[in-house]
Design a protein around this nucleic acid. Structure first.
Lengths: 312, 312
DNA sequence: CTGAAAGCGCTTACAG
DNA sequence: CTGAAAGCGCTTACAG
């Protein structure tokens, strides 16, 4: 042992993994890090995985649907688990993972397929909450700037938002497509705010776009926020808290989401059984300055203002 | 081959690496992803490494100086190269890498030690440029909010800034310590702006802090920017371009920096020779709205405004 | 309890 | 040109 120490011997983890059949590597696939939400997720993932004595192999960049070379690489490195954030595997590929016995967890996404686990938040309820908040604020004309239209997050947020608005008698929502992209969100905002019947309440599908939309509204259209236009976002990312924006936003409990993701992975790895598990968490509507504040329903908890209808 | 295809055979990269003595894995160590500059770097690194057929093993979280377990893990996975961003290895550890024949590149950092390569920008010239710009803007009283005081980036930026100011007869710079941290930068700004002789020109060591400082100046002190206070940042990160901030900032050529980093690594890996190489690139002072604009020296290139003293 | 052997899945050099 | 053998650095089961 002393000699080993002296010579700086370190066991070769790669040789070990060959015989143990465990690489202790988790692959994390993140299409893009531009949305500030994801770097935060990544950092937290790194923290938890290291605690579990796992390494994090990162794949960024958009994956093409089926024939991804990225996927081949995951398999070649015999990763013990895969976390997919802001990407979805084709059904073909997730099948392959399942047969190869590699646990897969979708982060902030779901699919109909039952084979792969997922961790999400109640996006539909979130969408409803946003609508309730804007209705309580006395708004009359509602808009929505969407994310990627086929994504489960976008779909669920919009469905909940629309449901609650329709129940209140508003069935004419102005919709623009933002694709979770700044530039596209800006274009959608320009188009929407140029309309003679422009909305006075706007739900933007995530904060990453909401920041861009606020800049367009304020500096290109000269609108006062929230006097002329209320904006609500989603995710509660860092920039939402910056005073210049102060975005009222549905939060996603990032730490708990990451924790659930790692838990699912760890239990599937150790049990060797891959039974799809779906963990669904809840967020809160964080009230700041980007949207008119209703007379009641806003409570203060630990210095943060949260909208909880029914309470005051 | 047909059979292999049918059975979904994929070579085991780990077994291969055992015999080839090449893991085709590069370790990237990033202390924190909070500063928006680093996620961008990470994404670009991912792009280039994948092109070179390398994988990216990510380590986040602060490393303790000498005895880091993280470093042990790097070694255990027999990574082919190490990129250190926003962290420095102790001399002891970089020595070990050298003897183990693993190339190391410091990204956006340097050390006196010659054994390890680095990619940086001309921070001292950058600091000078900022000073020249603020002097040309007619400012009288200069402040500086620092990064981590021991870091080479911070030191060089400040040295250049001070040099140019002293040459112009200003040797009384008000200095606050921001440690590249939002909260600390805010505290430093509060302290500095409360002074009776508060500066009218403020160089903040990076944009990540500059955003926070601007919010403090505007919303806590009611200052107009740039009328009451000019602020210049560093890095030219995404948020600097958001209209609400519009930070005048020294850019760092991120893509070229990443390219140089990967190049150094690749050439050292293929040659097997680890000779320290220091690549130093240049940035530009991107002119936006957070600082008073001098009468001359600002040129427009591809729709971006850049300060190039001596030209107009 | 200690120590030698087999084997994980590859690649490479060598024999047929 | 094809095919069997050796070996990368571990772990694990087994023999002494």
């Amino acid at each position: 042992m002393a000699a080993a120490q002296e010579l700086g011997y370190r066991p070769n983890a790669i040789a070990r993994s060959l015989i143990t059949n465990r690489s202790r590597i988790i692959a994390v696939v993140m299409a893009y890090l531009e949305n500030l939400f994801y770097p935060d997720v990544l950092e937290e993932l790194g923290r938890l995985l290291v605690k579990e004595n796992y390494r994090l192999l990162l794949f960024t960049g958009h994956m093409d649907r089926d024939s991804d070379p990225v996927f081949d690489q995951l398999m070649q490195y015999r990763v013990d688990g895969i976390i997919l954030a802001s990407t979805t595997l084709s059904s073909h590929l997730s099948e392959e993972c399942a047969t190869a016995g590699i646990p897969v967890v979708l982060f902030n996404r779901t699919t109909e397929r039952d084979a792969v686990s997922s961790v999400t938040t109640r996006n539909r309820e979130g969408g409803r909450r946003v609508a309730e908040f804007l209705l309580a604020g006395g708004h009359k004309r509602f808009g929505y700037i969407s994310g990627v239209e086929s994504s489960s997050t976008n779909r669920d947020r919009f469905v909940g938002y629309r449901e609650a608005l329709v129940e209140a008698g508003h069935d004419d929502i102005v919709v623009g497509v933002g694709n979770y992209d700044r530039a596209e969100a800006e274009a959608a905002a320009r188009e929407m705010l140029s309309r003679p019947d422009r909305p006075d309440a706007l739900f933007v599908a995530n904060d990453h776009m909401a920041v861009a939309v606020m800049d367009v509204a304020r500096y290109e259209f000269g609108l006062s926020i929230p006097e002329d236009l209320s904006i609500v976002g989603y995710d509660d990312v860092g920039a939402a808290r910056w005073t210049a924006y102060g975005i009222t936003s549905m939060s996603q409990p990032l730490k708990r989401m990451v924790e659930a993701t790692v838990n699912i992975l760890m239990s599937q790895i150790s049990s060797g059984e891959i039974e799809a598990e779906h963990r669904i968490l809840s967020g809160e509507l964080m009230v700041r300055t980007s949207a008119r504040v209703p007379k009641s329903g806003v409570v203060e908890i630990d210095g943060r203002r949260i909208y909880k209808p029914g309470k005051s």
